[in-house]
Design a protein around this nucleic acid. Structure first.
Lengths: 221, 221
DNA sequence: ACAAAAGTGTTAAGAATACACCCATGT
DNA sequence: ACATGGGTGTATTCTTAACACTTTTGT
């Protein structure tokens, strides 16, 4: 074995909650920063590939099966000079997108909880920076791919779709133009179902034409 | 020290040569694949951050000072199951863009040479895959940023600019529309110099308005 | 009947595309 | 004078952006 930096993996798992972008945090079980909120992550053991480390850590610390995440992307690899007193580390980060993730509480888990991104506390290491970076990348991806599909339920209203874009891109859109654009992009198609949910006209439910990542023919902004 | 995968760094350095995209390769000094062409790369030592490893390797093996590269980006981090018999490795890859790079031959270097991307031989490890990936990323970057500036000399003609786009994106553009678009993007501006280079009308030289990476207001395709 | 969100169309400005000829130079 | 690449304009189509009222439902 060569003398080399240590490899670890951190994951940013996003979903929408109450029309807000939310990120999964856990309570750290070990020093440093024991008991503080942080991104789920951990060291890779020898022979373990970073994707596998991510899967293992999410299951072990958050009780989350990666199959719950329709989209997972590598984000960026950070170099840190020193982690605790273990010398330097290379931290490979991933972003996962999901919907309707229900976390079960359990003594064996580390209090996995979704925090609205705007309410994320100050986190140890560079975890706040990682979340910011992930948010920016997600925003960029929404403009040139169909990646929202991974954040919305199978059936959704155009208002929900618009809300997703508005929260993530932090920008208001005109309802008529937004709808025209998305229908012309052929990203979504109407179903024959309606969502009845209040003292107002029910909303037609749509679905994505593909549940795979695709690049849009014209980008969105 | 924990038991962890080995970290190494590979670099894809591009420049334009005879209106073709070219990539820097070296001859490997060590097994495995000793004597074969490969991307410049190597293991990180403990305490060494991946960017520093890249700088060190390029200087040591290719005699290239990173300051010659106006733009360097992290590309992707690959996991490989086994490298030689050293167990698995995490390979952090970078892409550097340059212009007018003159390589000096030297016994202490490993025959650094630029190969036109279309003539790159079959390389060991996943180096062909890495180059393909870098090429795709570069193509994408040209469409939404001003990153060509790093590949062209300070003063250049619009034909040279168009050639750069055409080679990298593998697409022909209409001369009039191309010029209209780039001038309206305000990416470049005319100077008062001309390039005289043959039995034809001399070409007006332009320069970039910024030598820093910027995102374009409207993307290009 | 009222409150609440769903749904819908037109016009104007800007951007993209398609397309062909004259200009300035070196030999 | 000719060969070579540099340089330019217009018409059409498509895309974007701005903007306000009617519909359907639950209470």
């Amino acid at each position: 074995m060569l003398d080399s930096p240590v490899v670890s993996t951190d994951s940013v798992v996003f979903q929408l909650q109450n029309s807000k972008l939310a990120v999964l945090l856990i309570k750290r079980a070990k020093s440093p920063s024991k008991g503080e909120w942080a991104l789920p992550g951990g060291y890779n053991s020898a022979g373990e590939v970073t994707q596998d480390a991510m899967v293992r850590v999410l299951r072990l610390k958050a009780g989350l099966d990666i199959k719950m995440l329709p989209l997972v992307d590598q984000l960026y690899t950070f170099d840190t000079d020193a982690v605790g007193n273990n010398g330097n580390a290379v931290v490979v980060t991933y972003m996962g997108l999901g919907r309707d993730i229900v976390l079960k509480a359990s003594d064996t888990l580390q209090s996995p909880t979704f925090f609205a991104v705007e309410n994320v506390p100050r986190l140890p290491f560079n975890h706040n920076e990682i979340i910011e970076y992930a948010h920016k990348r997600l925003a960029a991806k929404l403009t040139y791919t169909n990646s929202v599909f991974a954040l919305l339920p199978k059936f959704f209203t155009l208002t929900q779709l618009q809300n997703a874009y508005e929260t993530i891109l932090d920008h208001k859109y005109d309802k008529r133009n937004f709808r025209k654009k998305f229908l012309s992009l052929k990203m979504v198609e109407p179903t024959d179902k309606y969502l009845h949910e209040g003292a107002h006209r029910p909303a037609l439910l749509y679905r994505f034409r593909h549940q795979k990542l695709q690049t849009l023919s014209r980008s969105f902004d």
